[in-house]
């Protein structure tokens, strides 16, 4: 009986000693117990940041690899930068110049007839849209309204008393520059029964000028897609 009791106490002592040692190790490894939570937090953060750094270092290495490979194939590089330039021009991110037309639309200066709606004498967003549409169908390659380059996601929208293009307010006179075949562009606007004729009926001053060289600035906003991602299932041709 006595022996058994002694043995069980001894056995329990082993466990107690083990627990004591583990606890001692834990507390001595972490001297200020009060900030134990914070220490763990920091440990986690350190771990995360370290992983991030490693990943970034890997990326740097792989990019350097690519760079050295690219500079080895100088010709390929040139082709790629050429392609990039072309893509930028097509996207409207590069200033361009060339022959084309300058269309100027100014609000009517006719004396208002009291019974008429004054809105009919003003240039509206719809008018600009239609003119731009005509220019596009006439083969215009680059269009800018009051130095605002029209790109694939540009809007022309009425906002109170002003018109927004590329979320920038523009005011009359509206100067629409378009690069393309000048005579085709002019005739697409000046065609009998065309839109400019309708506008001029309301007294809106329209002027179409053919020029040998006009400069059109680049799109100054940011082109960023938040929702659209490349569809990798169907490869673009």
């Amino acid at each position: 009986m006595k022996k058994e009791a002694m043995l069980s106490i001894a056995l329990v002592s082993v466990i107690l000693g083990f627990m004591l040692a583990v606890q001692f190790k834990t507390t001595s490894a972490n001297p200020n117990n009060l900030s134990a939570m914070r220490a763990q937090d920091l440990t986690l953060q350190l771990d995360k940041v370290t992983k991030e750094r490693d990943a970034l270092a890997d990326e740097v290495a792989s990019l350097r690899d690519k760079l050295s490979q690219a500079s080895k194939h100088d010709q390929a590089m040139q082709v790629i930068s050429q392609e990039l330039k072309t893509a930028n021009i097509l996207a409207g991110l590069e200033p361009v110049k060339g022959p084309g037309v300058i269309v100027t639309l100014t609000d009517s200066s006719q004396p208002l007839v009291p019974s008429d709606n004054p809105n009919l004498y003003l240039v509206h967003d719809q008018d600009l849209l239609t003119v731009v549409n005509e220019l596009r169908s006439g083969g215009a390659e680059a269009i800018a309204i009051n130095e605002q380059r029209l790109v694939s996601n540009s809007e022309i929208r009425c906002a109170g008393t002003t018109i927004l293009v590329n979320t920038t307010k523009i005011a009359p006179p509206f100067v629409i520059k378009a690069i393309g075949d000048p005579s085709v562009l002019e005739s697409s606007l000046r065609i009998k029964g065309g839109y400019l004729e309708t506008l001029e009926n309301w007294g809106v001053k329209c002027q179409v000028k053919k020029v040998d060289s006009i400069e059109i600035p680049e799109y100054k906003g940011t082109l960023r897609f938040e929702f659209a991602v490349p569809n990798t299932n169907e490869k673009a041709e």
Binding site: L11, S13, V14, L16, G17, F18, A21, V22, Q23, A36
Partner: peptide, 19 residues
């Protein structure tokens, strides 16, 4: 036995989380 337990605890790579 107590010392043996302490020894085992110190030698074994057992750690418990701070929490």
């Amino acid at each position: 036995c107590l010392l043996l337990g302490i020894f085992i605890g110190l030698e074994m790579p057992v750690f418990i989380p701070f929490l």
